[in-house]
Design a protein around this nucleic acid. Sequence first.
DNA 1: GCAGGATAGCGTCGGGCATG
DNA 2: CATGCCCGACGCTATCCTGC
Length: 242
Amino acid sequence: MRFTFTTEPARFIERPNRYVILAEIRSGVTVRAHCPDPGRLRELLIPGATVHLSSTPREGRRTTHELRFVERPETGLLISLDSRLPNALFREALDERTLEPFSDWTAYEPEVFLPASGGRIRSRADFLLRGQDGARTWVEVKSATLVEDRCAYFPDAVTERGRRHLEELAAIARSGERAAVCFIVQRPDADMLRPQWDRDPAFAEALEEAERAGVLLTAYNADITLSEATLRRRIPVLTGRP
DNA sequence: GCAGGATAGCGTCGGGCATG
DNA sequence: CATGCCCGACGCTATCCTGC
């Protein structure tokens, strides 16, 4: 997927709130940029780190720039910080039928309500695919940016909502329909993905339980450049406690 | 008084709904 | 039918509140 924006490098200063960062661009001016990834990002947004911003001037907008990437300090490797990108990448891959587990559809629909379970409020799945045989597959796409020792970790911060999604997918799988999670790691340097047992044990347990219930767990890493993002290869999801 | 839990607000986007 | 407004989603953090 080619990006429709261009970026300029900047030096990360601070993050006054989860949506906003301050960074110094080359002219020496400090600018406010919207942070499109509400995760914690503690390991990535370190003062002094090189980030890449696109200019987004628009009337009524409170920031002049959008945070797009952060560089890994030692290597300069680019990491995308846009939590909307994984969804777009997944959709593009659906259209091009490049992901083996998700290539056999006759129609799909984004943002669909999950079947109501127990009369509770229904949450939404990212995609609903219809197969050749008419069978339905519910897919939840998740964005991961944190990698340590070539292992991606999800979530970055405790996610009540993410856990609930997994439980709902597990219920779907038990009812005989298909359900899947697709983690998109927005960087190339991960060979596997694990849940964060210490930061969010409830999510990790729900992921294990979802797998037992028959939910398909998939993950892909991505090549990120200043001009495009490409899903690179499928990596294993390891649910067990390390 | 203190610790821990609950909650609001932060910026943007897009879906849904109301209005013309 | 087209346009535009409003509100929900997203997670971190500061602040407020509750209960001991």
